[in-house]
Design a protein around this nucleic acid. Structure first.
Lengths: 217, 217, 217, 217
DNA sequence: CATGAATGAGCTTTCATTCAT
DNA sequence: GATGAATGAAAGCTCATTCAT
């Protein structure tokens, strides 16, 4: 199943394995195939039969390892949303803030680059989460809780960039998310062949955030 | 069926009717119910039986008017993506550019407000499109074509805001989209009960775009 | 609808009209389209929607003229089976027997040729009857009654060819039917492009019937 | 399910099993019930629900073993048309030709008797094939290919009966088919209660073929 | 005479899931 | 741990037919 050997898939696999413990080989295949199918056809557009076929295992094997299809989705998405996004991001930001104290531009640049790297690495999963979060209550709950936590943790750092009130910090957070999401969608969905340079785009976005458009272009 | 009398639903209905011609009463009900269900449960999460029940019509009636469920989705989503997004937006922008020549901030403000108004009015449809565009090839094709056309039409106006190269104009476009999408998701999904003021948020975003964060907060 | 202008279709139309009286134009179209579809897809394989489309009329119009689909089939097939097959065939045979008294070979030849001509002319209907008679009780009843009547009427003529007992006459009848059916299927279904000469084939079959294979080839 | 224990059904079952491999018990039931229903109501007149009920299994079980209803028909009909009709018939004819060299009447008699026995044993299937072959392209293709092959194989034996040219051999083939089909339909459909003796009828037909009617009756 | 709109009943097929082996 | 077999429920869709206009 060499289709599953890309970095993105291996990264998700590792993240899932951190929560599930060492997985049986066919369980791994199930996870990878599910990831692949969910990203391609969406959760509802993917049948367990399809997952089984793509994994080269029996349909019943999926249910030996996951009590339900819904659970399979959550057990794939949650660890990434939870263990990777949050602590990693905040730990990283804190570390960066320590290293580059007084150089907010640099901090922001590094954070954005690392978040984009993360989104690239977990690309199929990002797509799944985007898709399902609009509709799936469980996933939304997990997401909101984690993002809320993250917000708490890095609020002091955000403060370094100017925002003083809570509302302003939320805005800043939202703007960062919007810019990153917009770029990620463009580079992966709209113009995947454009030859994007993350550094260049991040520099542009950082410039925008700090100095606005006029100073940038 | 007073549930369907909100502005959002009526707006979509009108847009659909522009493409379908005058619709039979039960066809209208089918469109409205479909819209309602798709927005609530997603495309795949909605059964034609559910649509029929919510519309108070027979399931077969849906298929008398639309050859398939997939077609029903496209025939609802496409007119809005097509006839409303594109020409309206560009005509409006041109008009604004004429009125407020030399005041780019004002132009941008008005365009953003009107786009946000549009997203609010067509909220259920925006959600559907967001969901399906990641997975549905047909819808993606329609979307990309229309956005491409829109980009062509308003490129000269975008140029007024500073960007000189095509890439810069694309970036500007993407950033605008990212910011608007981020705000729309926050006001509708994340914190729907926070009493958002579109004017205030747009002013903030316009400030950011022109002067950057430091000058804004 | 020039597809319907072949001799076969017009012949059936005439036969049906003899039973139905002068038909409204759209009723004629319905009959022709039904004939065409039934012959192509079989009775069950043909939907009233398809008939309506092929006829270029509304589905409801079919039911204005025929109380049910089943009835439509019978009202097309019965007149041909009834009024054409039987009296024509026996009248013709009697006439031939009178003209060619003492020349059984000539009589048989003419009867076979005329039956083959008939099958050619009513080709689509022959196919429908063949198909449905195995399964449709009503049609089988009509067919058996008519064939029974025909058998009674021409028994004396059959006697001229040798068979003395009733069983032998039935056998003769069956053999004639089998040979004609076999040839008809071959010329229309199996090798429609072979350029068959009915005269030649009939001569062969007459030879076989009277003198056997050895004397023939 | 003692209804399925007749020789005819068991014979078809064996033939199907030769192509499908050893079948699961419920798969066998599905095949038998399908055979039964198809023969009684025709292909289109049979619903998968009816098959399931008659087999005493769940409807879904049918689709676990056969991808579609159409496929179920072909997977039942094809093996019989293919593996039974062709090689058996030709092997048998060759063998007979060896044993009864110089006695063409005897050979023909045995071949016809065995073919009639075959049609009797596979009676339900013969009916289905007759019905569907007029309308179903796939089945027609299989049939034509097999009959073509059979024709090639036994052409030398046919030559023993007199026909010299290819056309004459085809005619002989067609006549044999017509006679057999005519008798089979009479004994099963038209007068199933007349105590037919295959031997007697075959003798009659052989007589006809070799010496013609006059010498026979 | 003709039809557009509507439908209840039914169709084939797919679904996620269970269970004996 | 893994699977082939099985299934109840529900899916999307088609059917022949009715009726108001």
């Amino acid at each position: 199943m060499e289709i599953f050997e890309s970095d993105a898939y291996q990264a998700v696999l590792e993240a899932v394995e951190k929560a599930e413990g060492r997985m049986a080989p066919k369980k791994r295949l199930a996870v990878l195939a599910a990831l692949d199918c969910f990203a391609e056809y969406g959760y509802d557009g993917t049948s367990t039969k399809l997952i089984a076929e793509r994994a080269g295992i029996a349909e019943a094997t999926i249910f030996r390892h996951f009590p339900s299809k819904r659970d399979l989705l959550l057990r794939i998405a949650a660890p990434v949303v939870r263990h990777i996004l949050t602590p990693a991001a905040s730990r990283e930001a804190t570390e960066l803030a320590r290293q580059h104290a007084g150089e907010p531009r640099l901090i922001l640049r590094e954070v954005m680059l690392s978040r984009l790297h993360f989104m690239r690495v977990y690309e199929p999963l990002v797509k799944i989460v985007l898709q399902e979060i609009l509709v799936n209550q469980d996933l939304r709950a997990i997401f909101e809780r984690e993002v809320g936590g993250l917000f708490q943790q890095i609020a002091p750092i955000v403060a370094m960039f100017g925002p003083k009130t809570d509302l302003d910090r939320e805005r800043f957070f939202r703007i960062l998310g919007g810019l990153l999401l917009g770029y990620h969608l463009q580079r992966t969905l709209v113009s995947p062949d454009h030859g994007w340079s993350d550094e260049e785009e991040v520099d542009f976005m950082v410039g925008l955030i700090f100095d606005g458009l006029n100073a940038t272009t």
